[in-house]
């Protein structure tokens, strides 16, 4: 049982980080970023190339993943989303754009990195055995780093000037603009930050599960699940959703193992019932 909880916590930390990026972009721009999973995959491949192929230190690779995705996210916001939001009549139009970008990134990833499953050498060798729990050291390091990033993100949102500006933006875009917050700049920054988080998790998880070009869509789907559980656009909700999904998955795979591959079916069913009772998730705003 302890093992199941430990797995759930480790998984939850990764998931929370993915959901944070998605929810940040949603909160600031009201955009559902379909391409989030693809950004994750891209981050994974950057780390694979630098750490796995060039054999540079892992930290450098992780930085490279983060910076690549931040730049990409910034460009996407500046060149694509800003234009479309300005020109289109209905704001749902951004969903087509996001889906188009998801397909585009899929194609780019496939062309650049091929369709093979890629893995990298372990970052830390060895396995921790404490009582009933068996946990490889690299998972502990990766889980710890994820928690560190989450804490860092929360601190930044709470106590720095850009963090405060972004929170203001999420609360009320027009009011923030009237108070003199440079809305466009912080939208750009927020999108870059959200994409960066996706890239970071990609870089972290490539050391454990590896990466292949096809997992972008499923990762996006999982990120949507977490955001729905926790409530869209809320930092606390994303973290809660991530940990809950990680735990459910870990418990489900153990308990429901005997009945075949139905863990996700059960999770979906539970989610539908949950959403019937709390349509906005645990902490979501009344209107998405």
């Amino acid at each position: 049982m302890e093992q199941v909880v430990a797995n759930g916590l480790y998984l939850g930390a990764q998931y929370a980080l993915i959901a944070l990026g998605l929810t940040l972009i949603f909160a600031l721009m009201n955009v559902l970023n379909f391409a989030h999973g693809q950004m994750y995959v891209l981050g994974g491949f950057v780390t694979y190339e630098i750490y796995g192929q060039l054999r540079w230190p892992f930290v450098v690779a992780l930085f490279a993943s983060a910076i690549t995705l931040a730049v990409l996210g910034g460009l996407i916001e500046r060149l694509l989303f800003r234009t479309v939001i300005r020109r289109s009549v209905r704001e749902e139009s951004t969903m087509l754009l996001a889906a188009g970008i998801a397909y585009f990134l899929d194609a780019v990833i496939l062309l650049l990195f091929g369709e093979k499953q890629r893995g990298v050498p372990k970052i830390v060798p060895g396995v921790l055995r404490a009582g009933d729990i068996i946990m490889p050291y690299d998972r502990i390091v990766v889980g710890g780093l994820a928690v560190l990033f989450i804490v860092g993100f929360i601190l930044m949102m709470q106590y720095t000037r850009p963090g405060r500006a972004m929170r203001a933006l999420a609360q009320d875009r027009i009011a923030a603009q009237l108070m003199g917050v440079p809305v466009e700049f912080y939208s750009l920054l927020g999108f870059a930050l959200g994409a960066m988080l996706a890239g970071l998790v990609g870089g972290l998880l490539v050391t454990i599960t590896g990466v292949n070009s096809g997992i972008g869509g499923p990762i996006s789907l999982k990120a949507f699940l977490m955001v729905m559980i926790g409530g869209a656009g809320v930092v606390g909700g994303a973290i809660a959703g991530g940990f809950i999904l990680g735990m459910l998955e870990s418990v489900g795979l153990t308990v429901l193992h005997a009945y075949g591959d139905i863990t996700y079916l059960v999770i979906f069913a539970a989610l539908l019932i949950f959403l019937a009772i709390r349509p906005n998730g645990l902490m979501g705003k009344p209107w998405g």
Binding site: F26, L32, L221, F224, L271, L272, N280, G284
Partner: peptide, 10 residues
């Protein structure tokens, strides 16, 4: 809004 979109996707 997006909640409905995400649920239907699921």
């Amino acid at each position: 809004g997006v909640y409905f979109a995400m649920v239907t996707l699921v």
